[in-house]
Amino acid sequence: METTGRADLPGELKYVQYEHSLEAQYLPAIRALISKDLSEPYSIYVYRYFLYQWGHLCYMALDPVDSSLIGVIICKLEPHASHSPPTLRGYIAMLAVSSPYRGHGVATALVKMAIDAMARRNADEIVLETEETNVPAMRLYERLGFLRSKKLHRYYLNGNSAYRLVLLLRPIDPDAAADLSLDDIDLAPR
């Protein structure tokens, strides 16, 4: 997970919002970057599922010189069904920064852009899961204001557990608090 041979950033990075017309140019690189830290790859449909519907919540960090991909964040934003009244829940599905460029605030910048975009679209909350051993990711999110709401036992295929992290953007409607569930089944299928 930690950087091996840290590189300086090649100047001021370009941060670009994804759009469908960029698929041919960037989807292979996005897949390659995300897959590096996964034991099992996601199928192309998973990427398209997110990018086709929520391309506006995907941001890329690009090399200013050759426009190659350095980091990416992929999200979705949907009404969360098990809540009554439903909340508008943002979900950070994937985040990765190419390992030589880690530790320069690239991921932080990407996450901030995604949060801002979701907040502009009236998200009530933003959630995600991260592996219990992924200290860098947890630190990053917690620094921004996320809280661990619960631990998910053996959540990943490799047998590791996860934490559900939550960022509340506006107060919970007290009348809706009867749904205490903090539940997640619909978001992250197992």
């Binding site: 901030k112 949060i115 917690e142 620094r143 921004l144 204001g145 996320f146 809280l147 709401s149 939550v166 960022l167 509340l168 953007l169 506006r170 107060p171 919970i172």
Partner: peptide
Amino acid sequence: PPRPYSTDELRYDI
């Protein structure tokens, strides 16, 4: 931590 996107009260809610 600084937590620019959160307030103490919102975190108390969660």
